[in-house]
Design a protein around this nucleic acid. Structure first.
Length: 415
DNA sequence: TCTGGGGTCCTAGGACCC
DNA sequence: TCTGGGGTCCTAGGACCC
């Protein structure tokens, strides 16, 4: 039996743990740059604020109804997520951490999985303050579906079996895990409107509408396991760092600073994971929503002579490629760096002609990492990363890092 | 004025090989 | 007039997820 434990309105719940006064009030959390609503409390959902709505489009509703609005506080959410995972892991040795707020647990042959789920839910609530819902099913897709129904019915925990026609019929086809907008409209066109109709459709029809991917989903709905529990996370194949700018950027110098920062960020991430990149991609884009402005999107990709995690080498290559794709006269909105085809260290193919540079860069990168770990990201950085960074993103409604920073611990009582 | 970021997998089509 | 068959590899784009 597979259980899907999913936190309710996770980001909102994290903020509420440290500000109990937000209970029962409408709350939304904004994406980076304070762009879109990416998490909503039930009260905010009832006000009609859709998932992913640009904030400027719902600002009026928020002002009128007194919605509490916050920037994303990923340090807090990441730390709360780790705490929840550690509680969940006490209940099953076989577990897949699927996202920041969801984990699949294999409850094996538990005698009473529903009762066990209730215990899990209670324990997570008591130990972390975060409310979760648990869906149970013989496959991941059915566990997902059960979870959706548990949230809808506010039952906390719910089990769905493959033959449970009533439950399957009550879930719209676009709400099935693995079915997005495109597949849903194709399926609706051929008369498949809910999970039951998908489960019972001829597989050739399903295959034609969405290939093997959709057929897997169909089989999972019938109770056949097609999507395995991944207990050990697969090593990442790519690492991307990118961000929209807080304001339109027009000069090559600003773009270079941004790309330099992304290059260093991505490089440091793979260094921490102990992997090496075989390739590098740099991209820039104008604001695709501004139909009134000239649009320009471009990218360039290269293969390194030898796989690398050297921030200096990655930064200089990235900036060189940026100069190749930069065009004057556009208002850029976004830039980023992808490290491609990552290799889990251990067997670095060295370049015969690369002399002692590598060792020097290696030592420098290590020292910089120590400095930034101890004294913050501005303690040591490469000149190309820039001093002012006037393009950097907006986060005007950020709450404190209550659990990860000594200076920002919550204070009990008032003076 | 203001519209997120970071991933994965699959497929079709082109280039190239013998 | 008539223009093969079988394969691999790579990439871009499309679809999905949270």
């Amino acid at each position: 039996m597979i259980a899907l434990a999913d936190c309710n309105n996770f980001y909102v719940s994290c903020e509420r743990v440290f500000r109990p006064s937000l209970e029962k009030c409408p709350v939304i959390i904004l994406s980076n740059n304070d762009g879109c609503a990416v998490a909503r409390s039930n009260e905010a959902k009832q006000l009609g604020i859709p998932m992913g709505a640009p904030y400027y489009q719902v600002r009026n509703i928020c002002d009128r109804a007194g919605v509490a609005v916050f920037s994303s506080n990923y340090e807090l959410y990441g730390d709360m997520s780790r705490r929840i995972v550690s509680v969940l892991s006490r209940f099953s040795p076989r577990m897949e951490v699927y996202s920041i707020d969801e984990s699949f647990l294999d409850l094996g042959q538990a005698v009473n999985p529903l009762e066990l789920s209730r215990q899990i839910r209670k324990r997570v609530g008591e130990w972390t303050g975060i409310p979760i819902s648990i869906g149970l099913g013989p496959t991941k897709t059915l566990a997902k579906l059960a979870n959706r129904l548990a949230k809808q019915g506010n039952t906390g925990c719910l089990e769905v079996r493959p033959g449970d026609k009533g439950s399957l019929r009550s879930v719209a086809v676009e709400d099935v895990w693995g079915i997005g907008n495109r597949y849903a409209s194709r399926l609706r066109r051929i008369g498949i409107r809910n999970a039951l109709e998908l489960a019972e459709a001829p597989s050739v029809v399903v295959r034609k509408a969405g290939g093997v991917t959709l057929e897997r989903t169909q089989r999972e709905l019938c109770g056949w396991n097609c999507i395995n529990l991944e207990e050990v996370p697969q090593p990442r194949k790519n690492a991307c760092s990118s961000r929209s700018f807080g304001r339109p950027v027009t000069t090559l110098q600003d773009l270079e600073e941004a790309v330099a920062n992304h290059a260093v960020k991505a490089a440091n991430r793979i260094r921490r994971e102990g992997s090496l990149a075989r390739g590098l991609q740099v991209f820039v884009a104008t604001n695709r929503f501004r139909k009134d402005l000239p649009q320009y999107v471009n990218s360039r990709t290269m293969v390194f002579g030898e796989p690398t995690d050297d921030p200096i080498c990655i930064l200089s290559s990235a900036c060189r490629m940026l100069r190749g794709i930069y065009r004057n006269g556009y208002a850029y909105k976004k830039a980023g760096v992808l490290l491609l085809d990552l290799d889990q260290g251990g067997h670095q193919q060295l370049n015969l002609f690369n002399g002692g540079e590598r060792e020097k860069h290696e030592r420098l990168a290590d020292v910089m990492e120590q400095l930034t770990t101890a004294y913050g990201p501005r303690a040591a950085f490469l000149a190309a990363q820039g001093l002012e960074r006037s393009w950097s993103m907006k986060r005007s409604r950020l709450t404190s890092r209550y659990t990860t920073s000594w200076d920002e611990l919550p204070v009990a009582g008032t003076s």
